[in-house]
Design a protein around this nucleic acid. Structure first.
Lengths: 144, 144
DNA sequence: GTTGCTGCAAAGTATTTGCACCGAT
DNA sequence: ATCGGTGCAAATACTTTGCAGCAAC
Protein backbone atom coordinates (compact mmCIF):
# COMPACT_ATOMS: atom_id res chain seq x y z
CA UNK A 1 0.00 0.00 0.00
CA UNK A 2 1.18 3.45 -0.78
CA UNK A 3 -0.96 4.94 2.03
CA UNK A 4 -3.85 7.30 1.94
CA UNK A 5 -1.70 10.38 1.42
CA UNK A 6 -1.12 9.48 -2.22
CA UNK A 7 -4.84 9.10 -2.80
CA UNK A 8 -5.40 12.38 -1.01
CA UNK A 9 -2.83 14.15 -3.14
CA UNK A 10 -4.47 12.75 -6.26
CA UNK A 11 -7.88 13.95 -5.16
CA UNK A 12 -6.53 17.36 -4.25
CA UNK A 13 -5.49 17.69 -7.89
CA UNK A 14 -8.58 16.15 -9.43
CA UNK A 15 -6.55 13.19 -10.59
CA UNK A 16 -7.91 9.66 -10.64
CA UNK A 17 -6.18 6.57 -9.38
CA UNK A 18 -6.60 4.55 -12.56
CA UNK A 19 -5.40 0.99 -12.86
CA UNK A 20 -2.41 2.18 -14.88
CA UNK A 21 -1.38 4.62 -12.20
CA UNK A 22 -1.83 1.95 -9.56
CA UNK A 23 0.46 -0.38 -11.50
CA UNK A 24 3.14 2.31 -11.78
CA UNK A 25 2.89 3.04 -8.07
CA UNK A 26 3.07 -0.67 -7.30
CA UNK A 27 6.24 -0.95 -9.37
CA UNK A 28 7.78 1.96 -7.50
CA UNK A 29 6.67 0.53 -4.21
CA UNK A 30 8.01 -2.92 -4.99
CA UNK A 31 11.35 -1.37 -5.90
CA UNK A 32 11.92 1.01 -3.04
CA UNK A 33 15.43 2.42 -3.02
CA UNK A 34 15.98 1.40 -6.65
CA UNK A 35 16.02 4.63 -8.72
CA UNK A 36 14.25 3.32 -11.80
CA UNK A 37 14.23 4.99 -15.20
CA UNK A 38 10.97 5.43 -17.11
CA UNK A 39 12.08 2.61 -19.36
CA UNK A 40 12.58 0.24 -16.49
CA UNK A 41 9.25 1.13 -14.92
CA UNK A 42 7.60 0.55 -18.30
CA UNK A 43 9.27 -2.82 -18.68
CA UNK A 44 8.27 -4.00 -15.20
CA UNK A 45 4.76 -2.57 -15.49
CA UNK A 46 4.22 -4.46 -18.75
CA UNK A 47 4.42 -7.75 -16.88
CA UNK A 48 1.40 -6.73 -14.86
CA UNK A 49 -0.40 -4.86 -17.63
CA UNK A 50 1.01 -5.83 -21.03
CA UNK A 51 -0.66 -3.12 -23.08
CA UNK A 52 0.24 -0.15 -20.91
CA UNK A 53 1.77 2.62 -23.01
CA UNK A 54 5.10 4.28 -22.36
CA UNK A 55 3.49 7.70 -22.62
CA UNK A 56 1.22 6.80 -19.73
CA UNK A 57 4.22 5.76 -17.70
CA UNK A 58 5.98 9.07 -18.44
CA UNK A 59 2.83 11.05 -17.68
CA UNK A 60 2.26 9.19 -14.43
CA UNK A 61 5.85 9.56 -13.26
CA UNK A 62 5.74 13.25 -14.11
CA UNK A 63 2.51 13.85 -12.20
CA UNK A 64 3.71 11.87 -9.20
CA UNK A 65 6.95 13.83 -9.12
CA UNK A 66 5.02 17.11 -9.30
CA UNK A 67 2.95 15.96 -6.32
CA UNK A 68 6.06 14.92 -4.35
CA UNK A 69 5.05 11.30 -4.35
CA UNK A 70 8.13 10.44 -6.37
CA UNK A 71 11.52 12.07 -6.47
CA UNK A 72 13.03 12.71 -9.89
CA UNK A 73 16.79 12.87 -10.32
CA UNK A 74 19.46 12.70 -12.96
CA UNK A 75 22.49 10.59 -12.16
CA UNK A 76 24.62 10.99 -15.19
CA UNK A 77 23.49 9.74 -18.54
CA UNK A 78 21.01 12.51 -19.17
CA UNK A 79 18.18 10.19 -18.19
CA UNK A 80 15.75 10.70 -15.37
CA UNK A 81 15.42 8.27 -12.53
CA UNK A 82 12.58 8.06 -10.04
CA UNK A 83 12.17 6.77 -6.53
CA UNK A 84 9.36 6.77 -4.02
CA UNK A 85 9.68 9.68 -1.63
CA UNK A 86 10.34 8.54 1.87
CA UNK A 87 7.84 10.24 4.16
CA UNK A 88 10.11 10.06 7.18
CA UNK A 89 13.58 10.93 6.05
CA UNK A 90 13.86 13.70 3.53
CA UNK A 91 17.23 14.78 2.26
CA UNK A 92 19.06 11.57 1.65
CA UNK A 93 22.11 11.55 -0.55
CA UNK A 94 23.66 9.19 -3.03
CA UNK A 95 26.94 7.47 -3.54
CA UNK A 96 27.44 6.38 -7.13
CA UNK A 97 30.00 3.65 -7.65
CA UNK A 98 32.25 4.56 -10.55
CA UNK A 99 32.95 0.90 -11.21
CA UNK A 100 29.71 -1.08 -10.99
CA UNK A 101 27.33 1.87 -11.11
CA UNK A 102 25.48 0.83 -7.96
CA UNK A 103 23.80 3.62 -6.06
CA UNK A 104 23.98 3.69 -2.29
CA UNK A 105 22.09 6.00 0.00
CA UNK A 106 23.44 8.09 2.79
CA UNK A 107 20.91 9.06 5.38
CA UNK A 108 22.92 11.38 7.53
CA UNK A 109 22.50 15.00 6.93
CA UNK A 110 25.65 16.89 7.68
CA UNK A 111 24.92 19.96 5.66
CA UNK A 112 23.14 22.08 8.21
CA UNK A 113 26.15 24.21 8.99
CA UNK A 114 26.77 24.94 5.31
CA UNK A 115 23.13 25.86 4.76
CA UNK A 116 23.11 28.05 7.81
CA UNK A 117 26.10 29.91 6.50
CA UNK A 118 24.44 30.48 3.14
CA UNK A 119 21.20 31.66 4.69
CA UNK A 120 23.23 34.27 6.51
CA UNK A 121 24.33 35.44 3.05
CA UNK A 122 20.72 35.95 2.03
CA UNK A 123 19.76 32.71 0.30
CA UNK A 124 16.62 30.81 1.21
CA UNK A 125 17.67 27.16 0.91
CA UNK A 126 14.83 24.88 -0.11
CA UNK A 127 16.43 21.57 -0.89
CA UNK A 128 19.76 20.03 -1.61
CA UNK A 129 21.17 17.11 -3.41
CA UNK A 130 24.55 15.58 -2.85
CA UNK A 131 26.16 13.03 -5.08
CA UNK A 132 29.34 11.29 -4.07
CA UNK A 133 31.34 9.51 -6.73
CA UNK A 134 33.27 6.65 -5.24
CA UNK A 135 34.33 3.03 -5.46
CA UNK A 136 32.09 0.86 -3.35
CA UNK A 137 33.42 -1.73 -0.89
CA UNK A 138 32.38 -4.60 -3.19
CA UNK A 139 34.30 -3.34 -6.18
CA UNK A 140 37.35 -2.57 -4.09
CA UNK A 141 37.23 -6.14 -2.80
CA UNK A 142 37.11 -7.69 -6.29
CA UNK A 143 40.08 -5.71 -7.51
CA UNK A 144 42.39 -7.05 -4.83
CA UNK B 1 44.63 32.50 -22.43
CA UNK B 2 43.86 29.00 -21.30
CA UNK B 3 47.48 28.44 -20.19
CA UNK B 4 50.02 25.94 -21.33
CA UNK B 5 48.52 23.07 -19.36
CA UNK B 6 45.67 22.71 -21.86
CA UNK B 7 48.12 22.50 -24.73
CA UNK B 8 50.13 19.97 -22.75
CA UNK B 9 47.08 17.87 -22.09
CA UNK B 10 46.21 17.94 -25.77
CA UNK B 11 49.70 16.85 -26.74
CA UNK B 12 49.70 14.12 -24.14
CA UNK B 13 46.68 12.66 -25.96
CA UNK B 14 47.91 13.28 -29.50
CA UNK B 15 45.20 15.86 -30.02
CA UNK B 16 45.71 18.98 -32.05
CA UNK B 17 44.74 22.49 -31.08
CA UNK B 18 42.81 23.25 -34.25
CA UNK B 19 41.20 26.60 -34.85
CA UNK B 20 37.79 25.14 -34.03
CA UNK B 21 39.01 23.83 -30.69
CA UNK B 22 40.63 27.17 -29.97
CA UNK B 23 37.36 28.95 -30.65
CA UNK B 24 35.48 26.61 -28.30
CA UNK B 25 38.08 27.14 -25.59
CA UNK B 26 37.91 30.90 -26.12
CA UNK B 27 34.16 30.80 -25.69
CA UNK B 28 34.51 28.84 -22.47
CA UNK B 29 37.23 31.16 -21.30
CA UNK B 30 35.25 34.29 -22.11
CA UNK B 31 32.32 32.88 -20.13
CA UNK B 32 33.98 31.63 -16.99
CA UNK B 33 31.50 30.67 -14.33
CA UNK B 34 28.68 30.50 -16.85
CA UNK B 35 27.79 26.79 -17.27
CA UNK B 36 27.07 26.81 -20.99
CA UNK B 37 25.18 24.13 -22.87
CA UNK B 38 26.56 22.73 -26.12
CA UNK B 39 23.93 24.76 -27.94
CA UNK B 40 25.02 27.99 -26.35
CA UNK B 41 28.67 27.30 -27.06
CA UNK B 42 27.76 26.54 -30.65
CA UNK B 43 25.78 29.75 -30.97
CA UNK B 44 28.54 31.93 -29.52
CA UNK B 45 31.27 30.13 -31.47
CA UNK B 46 29.40 30.75 -34.73
CA UNK B 47 29.96 34.48 -34.33
CA UNK B 48 33.68 33.89 -34.48
CA UNK B 49 33.59 31.00 -36.97
CA UNK B 50 30.27 30.93 -38.82
CA UNK B 51 30.64 27.53 -40.43
CA UNK B 52 31.69 25.55 -37.38
CA UNK B 53 29.57 22.41 -37.01
CA UNK B 54 27.63 21.44 -33.91
CA UNK B 55 29.18 17.98 -34.01
CA UNK B 56 32.61 19.54 -33.68
CA UNK B 57 31.43 21.50 -30.67
CA UNK B 58 30.08 18.36 -29.04
CA UNK B 59 33.24 16.43 -29.85
CA UNK B 60 35.44 19.19 -28.49
CA UNK B 61 33.45 19.60 -25.30
CA UNK B 62 33.49 15.86 -24.79
CA UNK B 63 37.26 15.60 -25.27
CA UNK B 64 37.93 18.58 -23.03
CA UNK B 65 35.76 17.10 -20.31
CA UNK B 66 37.59 13.78 -20.60
CA UNK B 67 40.89 15.63 -20.16
CA UNK B 68 39.56 17.57 -17.15
CA UNK B 69 39.84 20.86 -18.93
CA UNK B 70 36.09 21.30 -18.71
CA UNK B 71 33.64 20.08 -16.14
CA UNK B 72 30.44 18.50 -17.40
CA UNK B 73 27.30 18.61 -15.28
CA UNK B 74 23.57 18.17 -15.54
CA UNK B 75 21.46 20.71 -13.72
CA UNK B 76 17.98 19.52 -14.44
CA UNK B 77 16.65 19.55 -17.94
CA UNK B 78 18.52 16.47 -19.10
CA UNK B 79 20.97 18.67 -20.89
CA UNK B 80 24.67 18.88 -20.25
CA UNK B 81 26.38 22.06 -19.19
CA UNK B 82 30.07 22.78 -19.27
CA UNK B 83 32.40 25.10 -17.45
CA UNK B 84 36.12 25.64 -17.44
CA UNK B 85 37.78 23.73 -14.61
CA UNK B 86 39.31 26.02 -12.10
CA UNK B 87 42.91 24.91 -11.53
CA UNK B 88 43.04 26.24 -7.99
CA UNK B 89 39.77 25.35 -6.35
CA UNK B 90 38.39 21.94 -7.09
CA UNK B 91 35.16 20.83 -5.55
CA UNK B 92 32.97 23.82 -5.79
CA UNK B 93 29.25 23.47 -5.42
CA UNK B 94 26.22 25.10 -6.91
CA UNK B 95 23.19 26.93 -5.68
CA UNK B 96 20.41 26.89 -8.26
CA UNK B 97 17.79 29.58 -7.81
CA UNK B 98 14.34 28.06 -8.13
CA UNK B 99 12.94 31.36 -9.28
CA UNK B 100 15.31 32.94 -11.81
CA UNK B 101 17.41 29.86 -12.53
CA UNK B 102 20.68 31.63 -11.81
CA UNK B 103 23.51 29.40 -10.70
CA UNK B 104 25.80 30.55 -7.90
CA UNK B 105 28.97 28.90 -6.78
CA UNK B 106 29.96 27.92 -3.28
CA UNK B 107 33.64 27.56 -2.74
CA UNK B 108 33.77 26.21 0.78
CA UNK B 109 34.16 22.55 1.20
CA UNK B 110 32.48 21.35 4.32
CA UNK B 111 32.11 17.76 3.33
CA UNK B 112 35.33 16.32 4.67
CA UNK B 113 33.77 14.92 7.82
CA UNK B 114 31.04 13.17 5.84
CA UNK B 115 33.54 11.70 3.42
CA UNK B 116 35.77 10.58 6.24
CA UNK B 117 32.87 8.77 7.82
CA UNK B 118 32.05 6.98 4.56
CA UNK B 119 35.64 5.99 3.96
CA UNK B 120 35.55 4.30 7.36
CA UNK B 121 32.66 2.26 5.99
CA UNK B 122 34.79 1.03 3.12
CA UNK B 123 34.06 3.45 0.28
CA UNK B 124 36.79 5.18 -1.67
CA UNK B 125 35.39 8.64 -2.35
CA UNK B 126 36.66 10.14 -5.60
CA UNK B 127 34.54 13.23 -6.14
CA UNK B 128 31.38 14.84 -5.00
CA UNK B 129 28.82 17.21 -6.30
CA UNK B 130 26.43 19.22 -4.22
CA UNK B 131 23.47 21.10 -5.56
CA UNK B 132 21.50 23.42 -3.35
CA UNK B 133 18.07 24.50 -4.51
CA UNK B 134 17.20 27.88 -3.12
CA UNK B 135 15.83 31.34 -3.71
CA UNK B 136 18.61 33.80 -4.32
CA UNK B 137 18.88 37.16 -2.54
CA UNK B 138 17.84 39.02 -5.70
CA UNK B 139 14.62 37.11 -6.20
CA UNK B 140 13.74 37.38 -2.52
CA UNK B 141 14.24 41.12 -2.79
CA UNK B 142 11.92 41.49 -5.79
CA UNK B 143 9.12 39.56 -4.11
CA UNK B 144 8.90 41.97 -1.19
C1' DG C 1 49.79 8.80 -47.79
C1' DT C 2 48.49 8.14 -43.22
C1' DT C 3 46.11 9.98 -39.62
C1' DG C 4 43.35 13.01 -37.12
C1' DC C 5 39.71 16.63 -37.70
C1' DT C 6 35.78 18.65 -39.82
C1' DG C 7 30.93 19.51 -41.52
C1' DC C 8 26.96 17.47 -42.94
C1' DA C 9 23.30 14.49 -42.55
C1' DA C 10 21.45 10.47 -40.58
C1' DA C 11 20.73 7.80 -36.59
C1' DG C 12 20.07 7.17 -31.78
C1' DT C 13 18.03 8.14 -27.05
C1' DA C 14 14.94 10.05 -23.94
C1' DT C 15 10.91 12.49 -23.50
C1' DT C 16 6.72 15.07 -24.92
C1' DT C 17 2.65 15.93 -27.58
C1' DG C 18 -1.52 15.50 -30.86
C1' DC C 19 -5.28 12.88 -31.51
C1' DA C 20 -9.04 9.73 -31.63
C1' DC C 21 -11.16 6.70 -28.57
C1' DC C 22 -12.65 4.95 -23.97
C1' DG C 23 -14.78 5.06 -19.34
C1' DA C 24 -16.64 7.19 -15.33
C1' DT C 25 -19.41 10.68 -13.60
C1' DA D 1 -22.44 14.69 -22.83
C1' DT D 2 -18.40 16.04 -20.57
C1' DC D 3 -13.91 15.47 -19.17
C1' DG D 4 -9.88 13.28 -17.68
C1' DG D 5 -7.03 9.36 -19.05
C1' DT D 6 -5.12 6.14 -22.41
C1' DG D 7 -2.39 4.06 -26.37
C1' DC D 8 -0.40 4.91 -30.50
C1' DA D 9 2.43 7.29 -33.50
C1' DA D 10 4.58 11.45 -34.65
C1' DA D 11 7.31 15.09 -33.07
C1' DT D 12 10.84 17.16 -30.29
C1' DA D 13 15.26 17.85 -27.90
C1' DC D 14 19.81 16.61 -27.16
C1' DT D 15 23.64 13.96 -28.43
C1' DT D 16 26.31 10.61 -31.14
C1' DT D 17 27.95 8.48 -35.34
C1' DG D 18 29.09 7.33 -40.39
C1' DC D 19 31.25 9.16 -43.99
C1' DA D 20 33.63 11.72 -47.58
C1' DG D 21 36.71 15.40 -47.98
C1' DC D 22 40.51 18.38 -45.91
C1' DA D 23 44.83 19.61 -43.60
C1' DA D 24 49.15 18.65 -41.46
C1' DC D 25 53.07 16.12 -40.72
Amino acid sequence: MYGKSVREKLEANNYKLTSQRAVVLDVMSANRGQHLSADEVFFIAKKEMPNIGIATVYRTLEKMAAMDVLHKTVFDQGKYRYELCDENSHHHHHIICLDCGAIFEVQEDLLHSLEQHLEEQGFKIVDHELKLYAYCPNCLKVEE
